[in-house]
Write a protein that binds this DNA or RNA. Sequence first.
RNA 1: GGGGUCGUAGUUCAGUCGGUUAGAACGCCGGCCUGUCACGCCGGAGGUCGCGAGUUCGAGUCUCGUCGGCCCCGCCA
Length: 591
Amino acid sequence: MGDWKRSIYCGDARATAVDQELTLVGWVHSRRDHGGVIFVDLRDRSGICQIVFNPEGDAESHDKAKQLRSEDVIAVRGIVAKRSAETINPDLPTGEVELKSRSLRLLNASQVPPFIIDDDTDANENTRLKYRYLDLRRPQSMKPLLLRYRMTKLIRDYLDGLGFIDVETPVLTKSTPEGARDYLVPSRIYHGKFYALPQSPQLFKQILMVGGLDRYFQIVKCFRDEDLRADRQPEFTQLDMELSFVQPEDVMAVVEGMIALLFKELKGIELQRPFARLTYEEAMNRFGSDKPDMRFGLELCDFSAALGNCQAKVFTGAIQKGGVVKGLRIPNGATMSRKDLDDMTPFVATYGAKGVAWTKITAEGWQSPIAKFLSAAEQKEVEKISQAQVGDVVLFSADSAKIVHDSLGNLRLHLGEKLGLIPEKDYALVWVVDFPLMEFDPEEKRYVALHHPFTSPLDEDLHLLDSDPAKARSKAYDLAMNGTEVGGGSIRIHQVELQRKILGLMGIDAQEAQDKFGFLLEALSFGAPPHGGIAFGIDRLAMLLSGAKSLRDVIAFPKSQRAVCMLTDAPSEVSPRQLRELGIRVSGPDK
RNA sequence: GGGGUCGUAGUUCAGUCGGUUAGAACGCCGGCCUGUCACGCCGGAGGUCGCGAGUUCGAGUCUCGUCGGCCCCGCCA
């Protein structure tokens, strides 16, 4: 750049600067060479400004401008001029002015870029991620990152105002049982021993409460070595917080204030408070999901009682095995084709269901393969429960409650989208509370925590721990937004005896509890205050607030579905020497 | 681990029933052009049809395998 300094960003050039001499820097967005006059659109993160090179203006810079190519980095010094009325570009914020070049410096030439750097580029994601630095030059790609930054800035300021303290916790930490697969880091000093990257700072933040910090937060990377999804990356960012001497209501109040602030500042939306609230049981019964999308209806109905004695074996069989018969009413669904209805079977098959029964409600009665198995009274009862009208379709699913909820819950989302029932611009937030504390895992033959083993049971359910642990509910709360879980937390166990008992129920014996969680148990025994907290998926929040379809859009350098960094090609092999130092021998790829 | 889907020029795509030399647009290169902003006009270059087998007289096209991208199930306290 020599002695030149940038005057303003390209996108900030306005008529108020007319006749001023400015220095602009940026990338050559495009060049239009008319043989005589040459136009260059100069781009930086703020936008685009048109530069004019005229042979009668400065012959030297005009000559140099002939050689400019896309994505060359240049500095231009010139005079801001108002464009004549007929040459104003109304599509550009800077369209009333242009910079008449007096001097041009080529700071760095660029190779021909592999794709066109423009908002309506049609390069696919694969290519864009490999050349992420080029992709990021597109405002559309940079925008979610800017929104994400504004979001975390608002969060930090908000929590700071409430007396929260940002404390960093270790990244090299201890592998603990339960939960997701750990990313492991071998120890060079202790061959055969490993650190684990944190799945969350859960235990550290609890220890901070024991340490009297009272209110902690951290925006922190977490790691889980599980397969990826559109809304799941192996490394992701949590807003983690913990408060002492609180009830669930206190945590939710802090959160609602924060979420409302984000919506007001980032979206200009005033959210209704308090947020809607459902118990886990109600969420599952009505929506078949513990993170229901509340932007539309299409709720599940329960036919178990009505069809318990009918002639359809698929229904009665399921009920006799302890399952349920539930359904969905599709308003005006009778217009759906036989194929539309039959296509639902492979859809629910992925969730373990054997199929979907259906009936069309016509003026002449039921039009359905199962009509003959249901008496007139039973049909009437189904219509009453589902509030079905002529012209509707009613769907039925019969199986275990888990499979029915899973398949109908997902079918509800699928149909909601397909039938255009979801208002895309809406935001529906809902707390789901009173989760079961644990459920029995038939494969492992033991209870596993629904949230994590440090979640406190509801006081009134404590007695169930001895009689029927699966029935005990917890002081856990999840926040769902538009069908995505964005946050989850709980009041923790702060009494060491109860913590030991819960670990015991989960099949962790006293010795293992001591080995894996000894430091926590000891801390709890030294005057741990009642405490609780919550953690938010920052990536997911940013995704929802920016309207992105994938987490990859709000992460600067995301991983592919196979957990590969497309830019650096990580993970990669390491040298034999590195392995030797770590005491590691690689057994070769699995066969 | 399983299911689905995609893979053709730098990019995005088309490519019929298996049939001659694999096309288009944009981009790129060269020439012309003094008010464009999707500049225009003329000309040109550019292909391991992801990879490997197989079927066939002949494969971008069919079969099998494999690699990679994406979506989903399992998994994700």
